[in-house]
Nucleic acid binder design. Structure first.
Lengths: 144, 144
DNA sequence: GTATTACCTACTTCTTCAATAGGTTTATTG
DNA sequence: CAATAAACCTATTGAAGAAGTAGGTAATAC
């Protein structure tokens, strides 16, 4: 299948959505799910991950919901995807906690995969949530 | 799991192996499988794909085997992986033959994924099998 | 005609992705 | 205080795909 799973894609979309609505205080899951067309239950499991890693805070009870903990420009795409994708490693032997490959010494392709790893991380770390938000325009946002 | 599956990794390793032994004429599958530590049956299904796409030719019967159809420098890594990986698309909506996403117009992340696609293809297309071969040295290879 | 090799179709097993179900705890509000 | 609204938690399911296996058929050399 695709490199990035729905979980990672959804997580990113949700972070952008929350950034665009960050002036509205705590936003209930239900609202995000409706806006983004994602099932509430599935979204819940994604938000749990983001809360655990403190990218978001949750507040229970009436009037509660979720909120960003930082400015949108301080979240990189890489950080979000590394949390929600089980692995962004190019190949199995570069995965976290992978056993050392006995062929590593003679492996012709190791350099290729490490290079790919660098390319990917470089790309993902160079983009922030702020870069992905809709450009501010009259009526779309307001200045404090 | 990892971005590149074992099928794609094996295919690449095998192409490099065959490039390094290209002076020896047709090489039987059995030999490649042993050298690379891959099950014969599994390797067979990978080679079938490469033959169909004419990256290799096969010859049956005694003395038969597989052989490259071009010089190693004329195979890009991208070509090999696109054949053997079911998909190298970053996300589902950029897969070949994917339905047009109804959210495409308002999608905040489409540009990100297209950019990733370009980065990946650029990387893979810039490396050839010749780049991955062991450097020629005395006793390791010979000149015609 | 026998051995060797590629070629072909189908199947199995295991894992992971995506999503669902059903509850418990915390906070607000009337 | 009771009702409601929300986050939080554990477990389960269904479908798809990855990885590998099994058993045969066709071509070629000797």
């Amino acid at each position: 299948m695709a490199i990035i799973s729905t979980k990672g894609r959804y997580a990113l979309r949700v972070m952008i959505d929350m950034a665009e609505h960050r002036r509205e205080g705590y936003i209930p899951l239900k609202e995000i799910a409706q806006r983004q067309g994602i099932s509430e239950k599935y979204l819940e499991s994604i938000l749990k991950t983001l809360v655990r890693a403190r990218l978001l805070t949750g507040l229970r009870g009436k009037g509660g919901g979720y909120k960003l903990t930082r400015e949108p420009s301080l979240y990189t795409v890489g950080e979000i995807l590394r949390l929600t994708e089980d692995s962004l490693a190019p190949v199995a032997c570069l995965e976290e906690g992978a056993a050392v490959c006995p062929r590593a010494g003679e492996c012709r392709t190791l350099k290729l995969w490490k290079g790919l790893n660098d390319v990917l991380n470089g790309y993902f770390n160079s983009v922030t949530v702020a870069d992905l938000m809709a450009p501010a325009q009259a009526g779309n946002d307001y200045i404090i």
